[in-house]
Nucleic acid binder design. Structure first.
Lengths: 236, 236
DNA sequence: AGGTGTGAACTTTTTCACAGCT
DNA sequence: AGCTGTGAAAAAGTTCACACCT
């Protein structure tokens, strides 16, 4: 219930029966990637699980186990080749190809957090900017014209759009989701502070921007007595 | 190791020995809050764990268990009073008071995601905007002048600042963290794509903005064969 | 010698099921 | 009758420890 099947197709020695992957593994894979990318830019070529684990603040066998869900990427007695491992994780997360997305909602998040340039580098590419609110339509956002959400479907036909990002005001979020579903988008990332309902064959992820602040407030308060299990490392 | 002590002081019947709270509980509390807030604005006064669980997409006893870490907020045979529960969660997360923070880094995130007005409503209040990059200093961000990070310490003395948010370019992140630590900030939220090292009495949380997209890419790819454990609900 | 890959032990978290209020 | 609060059972996730490869 908290696991995912591994994308088939690429399976080192693992059988064709796609493995079941803990979600926590996916979360950590992003983390390993971040650390590996910075190691790579520092010119590190080989790393073993022990120092990588320290940099990521996790257990070394955790890393080894996470990786073996997807294949065998290391060399015994040596460690992992940094560049190869980066590529392997890209393949594992399926971010080794282009993902097209649209944004609905000219909010600060829509405008700024998901700025095209930053994501494009990582294979995520924006195809259109929409809004439910007629007063926002027509505006120019980093060179993209904001279109009415009612024209979403016609606009993304044959553009191979898989992901829709909702960054509207809460009251528009459900409408935005409906239009995305209607347009055959299969994955929705919802940054609006409202839960939306979609058919169960559509993948929806609610991102709560307040959560990190809340968690921080809690952690800071709870550690008056220093009873946190280990140091002060809040949720991963 | 993945748990936190509960903030002492408020303990319904629970002993003074502060309980150990799973981090996952804290994450879900934000979620409950979001749903409860929207129920509240719809005028719902009482809700029982079952429908609340459906709206949050979790198990009902999960909610009940999460709540009992902090006290007994429900009425048997009836359910929870929505407004009271909201207040109780606010207290539980320690967001029932004001938290002052500073932002370092005039990036899109610094500028937009963490816009003052939105957070202020929830008790988070910005006290200063800084940057490591001299070319950004002096700019006006929503009425706040960007100050050099070197003046951070003098500026936040006696301003009761607990939280520092880093939204610089990756290469400035460590420097930003050092200045925050130097200024006695005890909680750091790092939105920069670089891990930073701080003394272990400082609480640091790394927020990875790419993670939701990565997770989405993975989920969409893995469900070609529909083997996801249940529906298509990615990581919470 | 050194480090991966991995079954087995252990820990944490979730779910069940029901006693006990209202 | 209905729904919370909660031990006990089940499931999931993490860490250990070591066989095995380079």
């Amino acid at each position: 219930m908290n696991r995912l099947s591994a994308p088939v197709a690429f399976d080192a020695k693992h059988t064709m029966l796609s493995q079941i992957i803990p979600r926590a593994t996916i979360r950590r894979l992003s983390l390993y990637l971040q650390v590996l990318e910075s190691l790579c830019s520092e010119g590190v070529e080989i790393i073993s699980s022990e120092p990588l684990a320290r940099a990521c603040d996790v257990n070394a066998s955790q890393i080894r186990k996470d990786l073996t869900y997807f294949g065998e990427f290391g060399v015994r007695g040596l460690g992992y080749n940094v560049q190869e491992l980066i590529r392997a994780i890209h393949r594992s997360l399926c971010i080794d190809r282009q993902w097209n997305y649209v944004i609905i909602g000219v909010s600060n998040i829509g405008k700024a957090l998901l700025r095209r340039r930053e994501f494009a580098v990582r294979g995520f590419s924006i195809v259109g900017f929409f809004d439910c609110d007629p007063s926002e339509v027509g505006k120019d956002i980093y060179g993209l014209e904001v279109l009415p959400v009612t024209r979403l479907k016609e606009h993304i036909q044959d553009k191979n759009v898989h992901i829709g990002i909702i960054s509207t005001l809460p009251e528009w979020a459900q409408q935005a989701a409906d239009h995305l579903v209607e347009s055959s988008v299969t994955g929705i990332l919802n940054y609006a502070r409202a839960r939306v309902v979609v058919p169960k064959d559509v993948c929806i992820e609610h991102v709560d921007l307040f959560h990190p602040l809340y968690a921080m407030a809690f952690t800071l308060s709870s550690d008056k007595d220093g009873k946190t299990a280990e140091g002060k490392r809040p949720l991963p």
